[in-house]
Design a protein around this nucleic acid. Sequence first.
DNA 1: TTAAGTAGTGTCAGTGACTGACGTCAAGTG
DNA 2: CACTTGACGTCAGTCACTGACACTACTTAA
Lengths: 202, 202
Amino acid sequence: MRYPRRVPRSGAEARRRLQQAALELYRERGFDQTTTAEIAARAGVNERTFFRHFPDKREVLFDGEADLRATLTQAVAEAPDGLQPLEVLLRAFRKAGRILEENRPFSEPRLAIIAVTPALRERDLAKAASLTEAVAEALRQRGVADRLAGLAAHTGWAAFHHAAQAWIDDPSQSLDAHLLQAFDDLRTLSVTAPPAQAQPES
Amino acid sequence: MRYPRRVPRSGAEARRRLQQAALELYRERGFDQTTTAEIAARAGVNERTFFRHFPDKREVLFDGEADLRATLTQAVAEAPDGLQPLEVLLRAFRKAGRILEENRPFSEPRLAIIAVTPALRERDLAKAASLTEAVAEALRQRGVADRLAGLAAHTGWAAFHHAAQAWIDDPSQSLDAHLLQAFDDLRTLSVTAPPAQAQPES
DNA sequence: TTAAGTAGTGTCAGTGACTGACGTCAAGTG
DNA sequence: CACTTGACGTCAGTCACTGACACTACTTAA
């Protein structure tokens, strides 16, 4: 092939076009009804090129993970001393939330597609688990006790995810407002937490 | 084919043999290096039969989900009145934990394989999310506030998962002991939870 | 007892995700 | 002007998974 079209050879260009094409096609026909060959065709590249940029058909929608991870771990690491674990997490997730709000034209349809596609939800959950572990590790670096760090990260992520979903369903309030509310709920839950002393199994 | 071997035609038999064969092969060569044709061959059936019993290669390891779901939701529903949400969850997860401990010869290698196989971890996370949602719904049926139910279920599941992992890594203590400890940690986290009042974004 | 129905299975052909090997082209470097 | 390098195209192949159809054992009713 003589490359009849004017295709920039940078590589990053093709990558962006593939992401755009995939997002469009997943919206138009759904994830399962879209073939990787179709995505490649709309992006003007070969199917093989798709798999050079993304390891599989799902990953094309999960590109911002590295950024998000860096934002969260840095925010946790740079939080001032003396804060409680959940206070640290609230600060970190508010920063991450701002990224989502700024990229709303991309993140909103993306979240909508993921929500209705089981295969994509699985991948999303895996990413969340990985990020949660990274956040937990960042907490440990701050001196938070081992098990506590993991539980705090899980709990914080649950609040974050809950806030993001509420934001999609009810865009009248900002993501930040939803986040504050979720962490407030967490506080309510905390206050009512029971003492988990050893009891004979019922 | 004249069915030369003595094969019980019940269907449930073939299903059990497929699960057993898959578990063995995943341990021997790993999930990715195992073919569905190989699983079927070891189970003495055709590859097509594998896909009649299980929708895909992963699902063969996730058969107990319905039982687990029933156990958890029933335990939540039948817990005595007046308990805090996390108290209810501790009771429910202790019952679920007993199932795992009783089936240890199966659940232990199963969890070990899942832990080292990304594709299986994804599916495991999806199952966990589904069960968590069921538990949250069961809490709502008890009158727990909407958002609180979701957060409590997430938090409780995090503790449950943490305890199960600790049990695999350190079998010297019972799962039940690990569970009590995890919920105790949760209580520590709760006590130190910060007030999440509205603050200007930094 | 026999005929019809049904559930579990085998066989075959096909689609689509994904991979390895190899060749090609464009841009940068000396 | 060779030479290298990075992005891409092409081709062949594996494997997960599906639809369609045939076969067999077991059940049920006439």
